[in-house]
């Protein structure tokens, strides 16, 4: 069953993770694996493009929480982009916009990283 897909691409010193489908307690481990792989490779500038993410539950939100500390300790960040209103509302209910940078378009997030280009790539 292909209810959730994670696609990774790299460019301009930023790693982009594209999410597609349903991110819930069943599929959250796929996203964990993707984050863990980036951290293992010391890649800490991460943009998560949510354009094709149709659903998220707290299990999915928990994955972002699990990795944000490690990423920021290494002077990187996880920036979120292209959310539908439905998905944004769930992030908003849990106060994520205070703690995470959320942009309408992927390019805005990439630009932010490049404005503050540091040693972590």
């Amino acid at each position: 069953m292909s209810e959730f897909k994670v696609h990774h691409r790299e460019g301009e010193g930023v790693n982009v993770i594209e999410l597609k489908g349903y991110l819930d307690a069943h599929t959250a481990t796929d996203l964990e694996t993707a984050f863990q792989r980036l951290l293992n490779d010391r890649k800490y500038n991460i943009v998560v493009n949510c354009r094709d993410l149709t659903y998220i539950s707290s299990a999915g939100l928990g994955v972002f929480m699990a990795y944000i500390e490690d990423v920021r300790k290494n002077r990187g960040d996880i920036k979120l982009t292209n959310m539908s209103t439905k998905v944004y509302n769930v992030f908003d209910l849990l106060g994520f916009p205070i703690l995470y940078e959320i942009y309408k378009e992927e390019q805005e997030a990439v630009r932010k990283f490049n404005e503050h280009a540091g040693p972590s790539r």
Binding site: S57, A59, M65, A66, E69, L94
Partner: peptide
Amino acid sequence: DLKQQLTHYRRGGLGVYLMRRL
């Protein structure tokens, strides 16, 4: 404390919080 929860990697309990809000 939701902010503390979010900044200190404590995932449990978010579902209960969401259920009450929704």
